[in-house]
Amino acid sequence: MTVVLELTNVTRVHGRGPTQVHALGGVDLAVREGELVAVMGPSGSGKSTLLNVAGGLDSATSGRVLVAGRDVTAMNARRRAEVRRRDVGYVFQDLNLIPALTALENVALPLELDGVAVRTARASALAALEAVGLDVAPGRFPEDLSGGQQQRVAIARALVGPRRLVLADEPTGALDSVTGEAVLRLLRDRVDSGAAGLLVTHDARYAAWADRTIHLRDGVVTGTDAGGRVADPLGEPADLMEWEA
């Protein structure tokens, strides 16, 4: 499987001198097509910084970040913005939907910014909204949508067009557990159909939708765990439930 995102010895230092903060201290990470990787760690461990650097929203202080084989650390701001629009989809905790645009326009925006004809962009946006199961009119404005509906719109925006890398920062943030699970199902489906995904979460229940989890602490990867496939996890609980006639 092709590696879509590759970080090599990436550091991010904020500030200088005695007040400087090492947000990332040399992170290596590769995410392939069809792979969803979860990032967990306590507050301030560098999770969001890692995601922002991976998606070109923030610059690495040193090290190399490849997105779809292209080195974004070597790009100028314009080229990097182009990669962000074309190859990377973001889902944030605070959804960042534009209130003056309808659901449909919000989703079509990245395509239109990228020069796709309006009619084509809207058709793609409509398909993306359908794929995430938005059950209300796409002409509604964000303020008229519930939290779960807004998150579906945000995910449609992240997934619209041929994005190969999906970055999600606490996408289940303020959602109830049923809606949160629906969000993970959508992310997982997209990854299963060929995208690469990186998911920051503090909920192990959501991280378990990923293929592996990396644990960050003070900007350093302290561990990775993967695996967990058994024929039927409910199949052999005999010792848990005592049988009595």
Partner: peptide
């Protein structure tokens, strides 16, 4: 750390099993 890896593995196994269940058709499971 070792324990957390094992716990996450168990959680992933259960989550995979859950993905395969249609919650309307098999609510008990």
């Amino acid at each position: 750390r070792e324990q957390r890896s094992e716990t996450m593995r168990a959680l992933r196994a259960l989550t995979r099993a859950k993905r395969d269940v249609d919650p309307l058709a098999d609510r008990a499971r």
